[in-house]
Design a protein around this nucleic acid. Sequence first.
RNA 1: GCCGAGGUGGCGGAACUGGCAUACGCGUCGGUCUCAAAAACCGAUUUCCUCACGGAUAUGAGGGUUCAACUCCCUCCCUCGGCACCA
Length: 848
Amino acid sequence: MTEYKQNSDPAHGTRGGAGDERLYPFDTIEPKWQKYWRDKRLFNCDTGNTADKYYCLMMFPYPSAALHVGHGRNYIIGDVVARYKMMRGYNVLAPMGFDSFGLPAENAAIKGGMHPRTSTLKNIDTMKKQLNQWGVEYDWEREVISCLPEYYKWTQWIFVKLYEKGLAYKKKAFVNWCPSCKTVLANEQVVNGGCERCSTEVNQKELEQWFFRITHYAERLLKDLAKLTEWPERVKTMQANWIGKSEGVEIDFKIDGMGEKLKCFTTRVDTIYGATFIALAPEHPLVNTLVKGCEDEKAVLGSIQKMRDESKISRSQSEVEKEGVFTGKYVINPVNDRKVPIWIANYILMEYGTGAIMAVPAHDERDFEFAGKYKLPIEVVIDNPKKSIDPKTMSEAYTEEGVMVNSGKFNGLPSRESIKKIAEFFEEKKFGKRTVQYKLRDWLISRQRYWGAPIPMVYCQKCGVVAVPDNELPVLLPESVEFRPTGESPLKFVKDFVNTKCPKCNSPATRETDTMDTFVDSSWYFLRYITPRSSGKPFDSDLVNKWLPVDQYIGGIEHAILHLLYSRFITKFLHDIGIIGFDEPFKNLFTQGMIIKDGAKMSKSKGNVVSPDGLIASYGADTVRLYTLFIGPPEKDAEWSDRGVEGAYRFLGRVWRLVEGVILLNKGADVTAKESRDKLAEDLRRKTHQTIKKVTDDLEGGFHFNTVISAIMELVNETSDVKVKVSGKNDKLTKCLNEAVENIVILLSPIVPHIAEEMWKMLGKENSIFKCKWPSYDKNAIIDKVLTIPVQINGRLRSKVEVPAGIDNEALKKQVMADPKVKSWLADKAVKDFIIIPKKLVNVVISN
RNA sequence: GCCGAGGUGGCGGAACUGGCAUACGCGUCGGUCUCAAAAACCGAUUUCCUCACGGAUAUGAGGGUUCAACUCCCUCCCUCGGCACCA
């Protein structure tokens, strides 16, 4: 999605541990099968067949120069899911594309590199080769590249639709400005006061910018999180926190001696009787009027200006000392007609609520701190029921619930109850009204950059702001521009681009020169894959309605807020204008963890990037895939280990030799059976079917690839043990052995597709293994006939007994009591209790 | 501070609705094969005591419930991620 800072150096591969001796010929097998899948169009989806559709989507990447094994995790997981679902009989759609507008390509151009288009398309080419090497397959005929006019035409079209509905608008505002990237950033792109991309401290700049009115959808974006039952809880929590809903009351305070009213938002209207001052943000529009004519007006204005000058960023850090100044004016508290002084304070944010608060020092930490500093009165109106509060000695604000005191007719009520009562009272008396506030801000989408989709708007002297009509889209990016880090869009200096005619009146006009945030591009691409070459409309609505919502979306946790929230917003919008029939885009979401090396996220600057190229050369792609999935639970971060890769490689070698060995057996090599063949056969068959069950359950119930692999390893170990003991005769045992081996190959195939295809062929099978049906297990075969029951004495394991599966409790008890170890533990002690957990365990409780 | 996830051998990690803790893999040690090495194969591997049989001990710390606790309850500690002067 977003571009990554880390780039790996493809020339610097990890050392190969395999040496010249390969455990199996992966280097010839892998390219062969990759070509085969492509030739047989294995991943090309017929979207016309929607009966058993399965839309398996990976977050499309920004085309960086080279991928590392951390990126690989995402694609490998997706590929395994797609192949598995195919074998389950689904018509799988697994498309891929490139989120190819963005800053890195343009920054490279500024440094004197290639034109962004050239470098981007080149990177796309490299990336496709790397994906191919991994054996990760897609329906490439549906490739979507967001920087091409055929795509961004429709990004612009969506902009115009938003504009027509009043959801795209331009306003002058203080915006986050990254001095290094020389562009504005959305609130979501500011991380700890720094630029998301380069970490440079962001400052504030007043600019006229385009916004999307995502706040209009705040309530639905919040409420509909409940619909997303198959999303990780943490992602939903992060989105809910980001939207930040709070319910409260907006109070109208009359300003004493002036006609004006002052609105304050509070969630704690129960504390209204304890309001001892009012605090306004320095940017509040009434500030100048209020201050006018006050004592020492000049000094007051000076300190207000000082507060404004502090960057918004440093003001948002809690360590910053609270500052404020008295305006000389008062409001009247409507509940008791008391005069309350109005202050200007640096801790009040203009962009939240009304930019003004009623301050209740006794019951708010921040107000308490401020009141302490400026010696403002503290009045307790909520008492702690456990220990009465003395306002003179209190050392911190009491913010808990309690009992109302000093609050007129509300005295004695529990504070929680009075929130509702006072709110009702306020509405009745018209002192104010109940409202809801959100932290979510409108989405700032203007970027002073070249490499993005131009905002399709025209400024006409007569008609004003005019949207470019559909038939004139796309507004093409001009080819030749000068890349200069001026802080203004390079498009501004391209006369042919800027000067145009008004689409309405045909008189001379100028174009908007800013481009769109690339997150606009990525918030609808999943719709385009269904009909990627559609030229008359963004997509075919009927078909899109059949294929979406996406059945499985897979990507990194870093997009928990930005991309996923924006995509949900755009989907809801397109739903509301009636061109799609669903209002949530992604039914199941899986967020995989990062791959860590030497304790840190892989990055070029840290020099800890593991490139797949060297690994694939030494061990093959299947080994890299296997290890990547075996490393740990895929949703968690995991530390990369080169030793672990070798272990995965050795395992594939063992499987390869097992298959070769069994084929030899089938030809009638070896002749001596060394022990009871029937029991061996039965045990092996049981293990085989238990493994089928375990693997299928682990894939269906979440992506537990690590336990899937360990289960298959167990089966391989057991099968290898059996193989050693077997003759070549075509009897029950060799049959079970063949069954075990075939199933091992099938169960492994989504994970290590190349070697699986090759072994499948060695076993004499005709078609691609991915055309074969996923096995089901025999319910009877998985039942153990003989059980080993652990025997505990007073909860401690002391012995084990072997019993037939159907044994009744009486017989079991008899056998346990006869066990010599149990006998010696019991000695002459009385048995107080005898607990039998059927098929699991026996616990004999005795006195000590 | 608030919200979320987590803490299990030397390491990555397993353990379903409370029922054999440490599966599987890595590493280490010992062995087979080899002139030798690599690969492969076999065996051992929580810790402590014991020649051994065996015993004791252990899932961040402490308490509780239970015949039985990694799992449930209470108190606390630590790590990671998100949000954070949001009224």
